[in-house]
Design a protein around this nucleic acid. Structure first.
Length: 298
RNA sequence: GCGCAGGUGGUAGAGCGGUCAAUUACAACAGACUGUAAAUCUGUCGCCCAUUGGGCUACGGGGGUUCGAAUCCCUCCCUGCGCA
């Protein structure tokens, strides 16, 4: 049997110092970083998305940053393809690929090798479905794929629409297939609530000082609509609202601090169910190194 | 000191005689996740037991009116604004 390539994944909530830790590991074990962050893939979203700086990269290759135009929607499937290419590239150079990021779905898509139905978004269909009520949508799905209709969260219009879109193209919604290509070690980075909250707050202050508002303003002036900023969430969403005068500066800070924290909790919920992850604090360098070493040597 | 407006669940803020353990929002807690995932969506949320359901304590304190009060009256305390 062919031995699978080894990939390391570092996951965890926002502001847990994953990136810095990943750099340490990469320096020590001859790695390359593959970012797994759904916002850092976009060009121009730098400060607000917490993209690593040139200096912080310490000369290591970082992949999957700035690979997409923020005007267009980038999807998990896009991510998966590009990430696999990057991982293969790293293998070619004899490097250990280290997947690092807080977008759990992206990480999962890669390490579990999820194959999504090959149905591209159909904007016309989506626009049409958007006008329907939840009940109508559910009914439409029931007609096409009763099984999927039974399992789906029918309050979630976005999912409902996508399911109909797939069913429309393929007749039904095929089960997602998992084809893991790599041997993976998953390490989760955590911090207790109090510290994580403080880090979120400090980081937010720092981002504002570094010109986060100006960054968003610049993106908007260059043609990124407020509706798009709204979709991008968190800093882009709320700074967008601030720029439109919907909230003031004080509210901006308060709401972002709160929303980022809620986001961190959602991330925890996602990762919590994946029992493969072993959790450490970013400060437990030695323990993490030992774990990585054991993984590489076995 | 007088006048006016208020004091409601963790917070904001509805309710203004019964259908109120109390709309709603936020927070909190739990969770979902099949090409937007920083997105999108769900559940719980006074206490105790229970499957529907029941019991208990609650709307600043105390006292009344009433079959029945968060809702009306009296009084006390507190807060904001206005006048002294």
């Amino acid at each position: 049997m062919l031995e699978k390539y080894k990939v390391l994944a570092i996951v965890g909530p926002t502001a847990s110092s994953k990136s810095a830790l990943a750099v340490e590991i990469a320096l020590r074990y001859n790695g390359e970083i593959i970012s797994a962050d759904s916002r850092q893939v976009y060009r121009g979203l730098d400060i607000g998305s917490g993209k690593i700086t040139e200096g912080e990269m310490r000369g290591l290759r970082h992949h999957l940053l700035d690979v997409a135009d923020p005007q267009k929607t980038f999807t998990v499937d896009d991510y998966k393809k590009l990430a696999e290419l990057a991982i293969d590239g790293a293998f070619g150079r004899g490097k250990l690929p280290i997947l690092v990021g807080g977008t759990g779905f992206y990480v999962q898509a890669v390490i579990d090798g999820l194959d999504f139905p090959k149905v591209s978004p159909d904007e016309n269909l989506r626009r049409e479905l958007e006008g329907k009520t939840d009940e109508e949508l559910l009914f439409m799905l029931q007609e096409r794929d009763p099984k999927r209709a039974r399992d789906i969260d029918f309050h979630n219009r976005r999912r409902l629409i996508r399911a109909i879109e797939i069913a429309e193209a393929l007749g039904k919604v095929p089960p997602v297939v998992s084809n893991p290509k790599y041997q993976t070690l998953m390490i989760g980075i955590e911090e207790n609530d109090e510290i994580l909250k403080k880090k979120i707050r400090d980081r937010l202050e720092e981002r504002l000082e570094r010109g986060m508002i100006e960054e968003v303003e610049h993106l908007q002036k260059k043609g990124l609509p407020f509706e798009r900023l709204e979709q991008l969430g968190l800093e882009y969403r709320y700074v967008g609202r601030f720029l439109q005068g919907k909230i003031d500066r004080g509210e901006l800070f308060a709401v972002l601090e709160k929303e980022i924290w809620l986001y961190a909790k959602r991330q925890r919920t996602w990762f919590r169910r994946d029992k493969r992850i072993t959790w450490h604090k970013a400060s437990e360098l030695t323990a993490v190194f030992l774990k990585v070493e054991a993984f590489l040597n076995n």
